[in-house]
């Protein structure tokens, strides 16, 4: 990672006039070239996925009867080749990106909100409450994930929203454990005690003093969660529980591509490249965010 060299001790210059934490973090994120470039690339991929239908000459489900398993070619408009059914791979990859990225976004957000709040409350309350809350997490852990998903399918029928819910419901467990551990260590620190002595309310202590200080590990974990979620979705789709034909996702495309690896490598390479670049960018962005949000790295 490249960071701009900054002097260890800054003199009290005009900068002390001050900015908000967010503005300040943004300024520092911009100094981090890898993170900025990643953010730019991620934005580009997201736009391409949304605008996919207008970008390519082919539709999602449109079969080109002249090109089954055709290699990439500029001439006939299949810039990334076609699959075994003669459908344009680039179009399908961009459509698949809509699913993969939105699942990643929603499920991670769900796990972030539930996990951080749950973990912080459990850690802060401690004692019996903590015990009860964490035993509930243990029970959730012990439920087989597939069982949960199938149960949801049976009750609510097949729906893409259910995949979000199911993945989010599982992913917050790890997050809550991480945050709880951090909180347990933090709440013994003297600044929390000082807040008590000032008469600060418990909810304020949790939101203002504890949660912001768990941010470092949380952000790192989020950047690890996103790829996990994308892969989990492809696993579900592979089993026929996730998105179904003709809709697709990166995971589905990759698992189809791997069967054709010998004869049509582009079917594996194109969706894999999109996934890999996205994950790499997320990791760089996560690193950059963690540094930018940590006042100690100024």
């Amino acid at each position: 990672m490249t960071t701009e060299p900054t002097p260890t001790t800054l003199p009290f210059d005009g900068n002390s006039a001050g900015e908000s934490l967010a503005g300040d973090a943004w300024r520092r994120l911009k100094q981090n070239r890898a993170a900025t470039f990643s953010l730019f690339l991620l934005g580009l991929i997201a736009i391409a996925c949304v605008a996919g239908p207008w970008l390519t000459p082919w539709g999602l489900n449109e079969v080109d009867w002249n090109a089954f398993t055709a290699p990439p070619s500029i001439a006939d408009g299949h810039y990334a080749g076609t699959d075994a059914n003669g459908r344009d791979l680039l179009t399908r990859t961009l459509y698949g990106g809509q699913i993969s990225l939105s699942v990643a976004l929603v499920a991670t957000l769900v796990s972030l909100v539930i996990g951080v709040l749950y973990g912080a409350i459990a850690g802060y309350m401690g004692g019996r409450v903590d015990n009860l809350m964490m035993r509930f997490v243990d029970i959730m852990y012990s439920l087989p994930f597939m069982f949960l998903v199938i149960l949801l399918m049976v009750v609510f029928g097949r729906n893409i929203l259910l995949i979000y819910a199911a993945i989010g419901a599982v992913e917050w467990l790890d997050m809550s454990r991480i945050v709880r551990g951090q909180t347990l260590a933090l709440k013994r620190r003297e600044f929390v005690e000082a807040a008590h002595a000032l008469g600060v309310k418990s909810t304020t202590i949790v939101t203002r003093h504890l949660i912001p200080n768990t941010l470092g590990p949380v952000i790192v974990y989020v950047t690890l969660t996103v790829p996990k979620v994308i892969l989990l979705e492809s696993f579900l789709s592979f089993l026929g529980l996730g998105v179904q034909e003709p809709m697709t996702s990166w995971g589905v495309l990759i698992s189809e591509g791997k069967d054709m690896m010998q004869s049509a490598p582009w079917m594996l390479l194109v969706p894999s490249a999109f996934l890999a670049i996205t994950l790499l960018c997320l990791n760089f962005l996560g690193d950059g965010l963690r540094d930018a949000l940590d006042p100690k790295t100024r």
């Binding site: 003297e190 600044f191 005690e193 200080n213 941010l215």
Partner: peptide, 10 residues
């Protein structure tokens, strides 16, 4: 340890 690292002095 007695000052929260993520809050400004103000």
């Amino acid at each position: 340890g007695s000052l929260s690292p993520r809050l400004t002095v103000g």
